[in-house]
Design a protein around this nucleic acid. Structure first.
Lengths: 256, 256
DNA sequence: AGGCGCTTGTGAAGGGGTGCACAAATCGCG
DNA sequence: CGCGATTTGTGCACCCCTTCACAAGCGCCT
């Protein structure tokens, strides 16, 4: 995660539009709030209480209030939050007022699916270009976009003013591709390749590794199995499960 | 993230094989170490220093040492860690000694790609069954597996002794599918649908939302753009940059 | 055998995040 | 106009995690 945080502006505090310098954990939750808010808006709700929005987003209500307070708090005590206004606020903070152009590199198994994923388009992004190193794949049309050779990356990226690069190549190809993206000026990368990317300072990389997610689940599965296997260790209330399962009330570890 | 933490075994501590009750943050990093270790092993290395493994895994060396110390520390001072031994250790802790069976529900755009993703098979998992609710997709063969109707889930899951369920359905279908998985006894779920799942206690859910990842990147992109746009805010050492464009000085956040 | 350099393992300090609990604020109603 | 119900915003304490810094341990070389 983030390491050095600039100490913070001394006392100047001009009329800066909105650079609240949010805590990273808050930033990671805002998109979830946004999704829940859109759901509520579609359902006809005009206002929500922190409690309502919190459960819709799967978090604690106190946490949600604190998160929202960081971005200026547009709630009304005794009433709740104005759904439309809050959507506007969050989208503004997340920089979603402009639809950002995304370049996807690697149109293999996973990349192909990503190229066709409509969740991107519906949530503020536009897949602007597809690239692959395999000549056999160049020229193929996916979702109205033609796959180009990765050598054209620098030219096309400039034309389309790419803001974010998505890497869905095999691990071996990921680093060179990242270097190319950085060279073109891309400063945000979403990496699906199972490897560590080395990028210059100022470039953000987020990694999604599907196998890792499964392995984390495997650990918990393993632990649960061990626990039930030897019921001798006192404590744990779940040993007493009668026939069925406890009513759903908690929720779980969403990867931070 | 995780909420219920069993208070911890009182004082019994028998000769339990290995239930070190690792910190969640450590668990989330172990798979990354494992991947790096396999790379090293393939490269012919027999031992690694914490520094070497740390950079290969993209983390701080102190953090890595502390992580490994939690699981019993099989390193040798002055030398480093035995690669093969450490692999064995981590795989054991993660419960990867047995190849766990995974059921994938929802063979749409993304699900199709997941079904064909070889990263699962090569890292300890076996996709044992595919399901979909759309009759048009039932019967299709993907990677040697036939897509079955979701109604058969309970029967097939029992036969294959499914350990983990992966949900790749549209958001609206995710909750019913999760309920079915839970009913069959699945206690670990990986959810790709953009919605919050409600599950009983004892069931672990991890969520992967691709749009959310992009939105987090968008925030940082937005922030970086705002920073370079207005160099007026006092303090910050980057005002003194001569030419203009603030040389890269901030940093990147690799998702935790 | 002894000493030296290297690397691990860990105590302690610091930062960040979470959740409780409550004061402050707003609305609606009598 | 005042009061009570409701809900936000936040001070505070706690806990987890990260990071530094260093002592302890190990191998190698002389």
């Amino acid at each position: 995660m983030s390491q050095h945080r600039h100490p913070g502006a001394p006392g100047s505090a001009g009329a800066v539009p909105a650079l609240p310098d949010l805590p990273e954990a808050t930033v990671a939750r805002l998109p979830e709030y946004l999704r829940a808010l859109h759901n509520l808006a579609d359902g006809g709700h005009e206002t929500v209480s922190s409690e309502g929005l919190a459960t819709a987003a799967g978090v604690n209500s106190a946490k949600l209030r604190k998160d929202l307070s960081h971005l200026g708090s547009y709630g009304t005590r005794g009433v709740g939050y104005d759904v439309a206004l809050l959507i506007e606020q969050i989208e503004s903070v997340l920089g979603l007022t402009q639809r950002r152009a995304v370049a996807l590199v690697g149109v293999g198994n996973l990349g192909h699916a990503l190229a066709g994923y409509d969740g991107f388009a519906s949530r503020g992004f536009r897949i602007a270009a597809l690239f692959d190193a395999d000549p056999a794949r160049v020229g193929e049309e996916i979702n109205g976009l033609v796959v180009r050779h990765v050598d054209e990356l620098s030219r096309v990226a400039a034309e389309e003013s790419i803001a974010i690069g998505v890497i869905a190549t095999p691990a071996a190809a990921a680093q060179p591709v990242a270097d190319q993206l950085v060279a073109v000026g891309v400063t945000s990368i979403l990496n699906f390749a199972p490897c560590v990317l080395s990028v210059p300072e100022g470039v953000d990389v987020r990694k999604v590794d599907l196998a890792i997610e499964l392995q984390i689940l495997s650990f918990h599965e393993h632990r649960k199995a061990s626990l039930t296997a030897l019921p001798a260790t006192g404590g744990s209330a779940l040993t007493a499960l009668p026939g069925g399962l406890a009513a759903n009330d908690s929720q779980e570890a969403i990867g931070t």
